[in-house]
């Protein structure tokens, strides 16, 4: 069975935290080329790797990965605030 394409915010989050691909790769325990594949959404990570990525960025995995194309984090946060009536 071929898995669904997963979208992610890894590239943005990595840039925000000032990490190089090699540094992020070291933190999540993969080859740095794999970080490139993840950022280009050419490879779907295992659940274990997704959790490790979430732990590095300090975010739940649903904030990093999605089965639908992802909006910028700022837009998503604003929409959530509006939904909550803040």
């Amino acid at each position: 069975m071929k898995g669904r394409k997963l979208y992610n915010r890894i590239a943005v989050l990595r840039e925000e935290r000032g990490l190089s691909r090699k540094e992020l790769a070291g933190k999540i325990g993969v080859n740095f080329q794999t970080v490139g594949y993840l950022e280009r959404e050419e490879y779907n990570p295992s659940l274990d790797l997704a959790f490790r990525i979430g732990e590095v960025f300090g975010l739940p995995i649903e904030m990093i990965f999605s089965t639908a194309p992802m909006k910028p984090l700022s837009v998503e946060l604003m929409e959530r605030r509006i939904e909550r009536g803040e």
Binding site: G29, V30, N31, T34, Y37, Y43, P45, S46, L49
Partner: peptide, 8 residues
């Protein structure tokens, strides 16, 4: 020595 993508 391989990560999960390389293994796949």
């Amino acid at each position: 020595k391989l990560d999960e993508r390389e293994l796949q």
